[in-house]
Computed example of a mutant assay.
Amino acid sequence: MKKINSTFIKFAIVGVVNTIVGMSIMFISYNVLHLGYWLSSFLNFSMASILSFFLNKNITFQSKGNTGTKAIRFALNIAICYLVAYGMAKPFTMWLLKGQPVKIQENIAMLIGLGIFSILNYFGQKLIVFK
């Protein structure tokens, strides 16, 4: 139980760093650069995922072995979690906040997507990528 708790705490700390970096990229891309929902959220996870891979591999899960294989599994995990999380978050939020301005709906959808992504990503990394 202690290993699970310390792993989760390390994952959470790495996640805070990634969240700050990723959300900055995402919300600046969307609200300042006007790049749209999908491109802004994609840029977030592309950039933050590179940082996340190295921090989680070396610090959180202290994983040794073939970095190339782990990187491929990591990229697949990120892609699946991203598509599921943001694919669910947008239609749900648009339905939930129907009648609100699209900018508000999409900003809230990105926050909800981030929460769903974080949960899915933790289990994917723990059980598949760095097992």
Rank of each mutant, 00 (worst) to 15 (best):
M1R: 11
N5H: 06
S6C: 07
T7G: 00
F8P: 01
I9N: 00
I9F: 03
I9D: 00
K10L: 02
K10R: 14
I13C: 04
V14R: 00
G15Q: 05
V16K: 05
T19K: 13
T19M: 14
V21D: 09
V21K: 06
M23A: 14
S24Y: 12
M26P: 03
M26F: 03
F27A: 11
S29M: 11
Y30W: 06
H34D: 12
H34G: 08
H34R: 07
L35H: 09
G36Q: 12
L39N: 09
S40H: 04
S41P: 02
L43F: 15
N44M: 11
S46N: 09
S46I: 13
S49E: 05
S49D: 09
I50L: 14
L51V: 06
L51E: 10
F54W: 00
L55Y: 05
K57H: 05
K57Y: 01
N58Y: 07
N58I: 01
I59C: 07
T60P: 00
T60E: 00
F61G: 03
F61H: 10
S63N: 05
G65Y: 12
N66L: 03
G68D: 02
K70C: 05
I72Y: 01
R73I: 02
F74T: 03
F74K: 01
F74Q: 02
I78V: 12
A79P: 04
A79T: 10
I80T: 11
C81I: 14
Y82Q: 07
V84D: 00
A85E: 03
Y86P: 02
M88L: 13
M88V: 09
K90P: 01
P91F: 05
T93E: 08
M94H: 07
W95G: 01
W95Y: 05
L96K: 12
L96D: 04
K98E: 14
K98H: 15
Q100E: 10
Q100A: 11
P101K: 11
P101R: 09
P101D: 14
P101E: 13
V102P: 08
K103D: 15
K103E: 15
Q105N: 09
Q105Y: 02
E106D: 15
I108N: 10
M110K: 13
L111R: 04
G113I: 12
I116E: 04
I119G: 08
L120C: 08
N121Y: 14
N121E: 15
Y122H: 07
G124W: 02
K126V: 03
K126D: 14
I128R: 04
I128Y: 09
K131D: 14
